[in-house]
């Protein structure tokens, strides 16, 4: 990966607001290079910035993440695959509801107490975390499915090949 790719790769994994010097270190590039590519990502609205004292910190733009994920879901998967995944998510949730005899992740959270062995606690914490993640993905997948046909129609109508074909008869 070249320098820009490495900076972008680190930027994509950000979970905390980070300075250019931290990113430079993680991406194994010099500070100026990191700053240049981070500024470009901020210009493109992929990253937002906040100032902490003298430093500028960079973090992912949640709006861009939301729309970016929906766009990628549509680009990378067929509508059938997305629908199948929605069904798979429902099955996972039902399995957790049955296994733990709870309605939702919050209820499972209330069962985390000192009486559980560590490994059992760990497993439930993981299920809670995965459950909430599946719920968020379900929302994004539903949006992707709703947009699917409209987006394909729009891009088909307005693509370059279509207008050239019309011009060239």
């Amino acid at each position: 990966m070249d320098s820009e790719d490495r900076v972008r790769a680190v930027a994509e994994m950000l979970t905390h607001p980070r300075s250019a010097s931290w990113v430079a270190d993680q991406a194994n590039v010099n500070y100026k290079t990191a700053r240049k590519y981070l500024a470009k990502l901020a210009d493109d609205k992929r990253l937002l910035t906040t100032d902490r004292g003298q430093k500028t910190l960079y973090y992912p733009n949640p709006r861009e993440q939301f729309f970016g994920e929906i766009g990628d879901l549509v680009d990378e998967h067929t509508k059938d695959e997305l629908t199948a995944e929605l069904n798979a998510i429902s099955s996972r949730i039902e399995a957790w509801q049955d296994e733990y005899d709870v309605e939702d992740a919050d209820e499972l959270r209330t069962t985390l107490d000192e009486s559980l062995r560590i490994e059992e606690r760990r497993e439930r914490e993981r299920v809670i975390d995965t459950w909430e993640y599946n719920l968020e993905m379900r929302t994004l997948i539903r949006h992707a499915i709703r947009l699917y046909d409209d987006l394909h129609q729009f891009t088909a109508t307005h693509s370059l090949a279509t207008s050239e074909a019309t011009t060239n008869g």
Binding site: T15, P60, P62, L140
Partner: peptide
């Protein structure tokens, strides 16, 4: 430092970040 962060509306645990991390791993 984590204590100074709450004023940002930033969810480091976003599903997109999780997927990006897993794709890179």
């Amino acid at each position: 430092m984590p204590g100074e962060e709450p004023e940002l509306a930033f969810d480091g645990g976003s599903p997109r970040t999780r997927k990006q991390i897993l794709y890179q791993l």
